[in-house]
Nucleic acid binder design. Structure first.
Ligand code: FES
Ligand code: FES
Lengths: 156, 156
DNA sequence: AAAATAGCCTACTGTTTATGTCAAGTATTC
DNA sequence: GAATACTTGACATAAACAGTAGGCTATTTT
């Protein structure tokens, strides 16, 4: 249950790969594709979205490629997934783009809303910087990152 | 992103409805269907799964219906969803039924695993009993919601 | 200028999953 | 034995997913 689409998965992996080159070296789609086992054509779609959302910037022509638009530590995973998959919406009822008529008499509505908040909270505390450092999971490490990451929540 | 299927949603709502009758009154599929706006035929599938999993038991013939197999407070939402949607598996890589060859050199694997654990943890702390009491989520908001929810239960 | 490199765009397609419906059963009670 | 109610499996439709294909534009190098 609750599976992420491949777009989201590949997107995060691509962003991680780009982050590894930051800030010096632009990475070409081809390089990313090879290192992360994804097709070039599919990655184009994904990176196109991320670029239009302002998370990465691109340089055309020979020597070109992709670069992060901000520092790795200022890009939470939630931002990447938000662009590629839309907002967290466990059910259509809690989707800001949809809604529900039963909402008033519905017991589960609050449940899904709270679950969504938990997920979004978690994904906002983990940044590409954490991924680079390999530190995912343990709460005390997360807390230090939280302060830095909270700035980014606005720009999403 | 991360949407739950209707089977899971309806399943939880059906379980909630059955829980309201616990332990005295078996509820017929028809009653549940009417109160939760779901088709009888679809509910049959859902309740069938829940019955085979031992979460509810059924009584056939006139006066029959469905009853919880255990007390509401002993049935976490995670159990209901687990039956209807399988285990939490953000990606196929962390799905116990599948797996991944890249797992060794993959940075994101731990991330998805941790996210899954967070979700499962949350869903395990909320039981049908909590739903009946209207107490879901952050402790401060709970109290105000509690009153409204309990009113809805009667008027529904 | 021409060639080579690299990103940009969007339409199309096959596959799978989700969301149900339908029909014909079986068990139980009154 | 008639009415009630659960049981089961097959089937239909629609949407989402996962990815391909092909042509285009911008920039650098020779
Ligand atoms: S059914 Fe939509 S809020 Fe519960
Ligand atoms: S790609 Fe499967 S574990 Fe990361």
């Amino acid at each position: 249950m609750l599976r992420l689409s491949t777009k989201g998965q590949y997107g995060v992996r691509a962003m991680f790969e780009i982050a590894r080159g930051y800030p010096d070296r632009p990475l070409t789609i081809k390089e990313i594709a090879e290192r992360q086992d994804v097709s070039v054509a599919y990655l184009e779609q994904i990176l196109g979205k991320l670029r239009r959302a302002g998370l990465v910037r691109s340089i055309r022509g020979p020597g070109g490629g992709y670069l992060l638009a901000r520092e790795p530590r200022e890009i939470p995973i939630a931002a990447v997934l938000g662009v590629l998959e839309g907002p967290v919406a466990i059910t259509s009822c809690v989707d800001p783009r949809e809604g529900c008529i039963r909402i008033e008499h519905c017991v589960t509505h609050l449940l899904w809303k709270e679950l969504g908040a938990q997920i979004e909270g978690f994904l906002n505390t983990i940044t590409l910087g954490n991924l680079l450092a390999g530190d995912v999971g343990s709460p005390h490490k997360v807390r230090t990152v939280l302060k830095r990451a909270s700035k980014d929540q606005n720009s999403q």
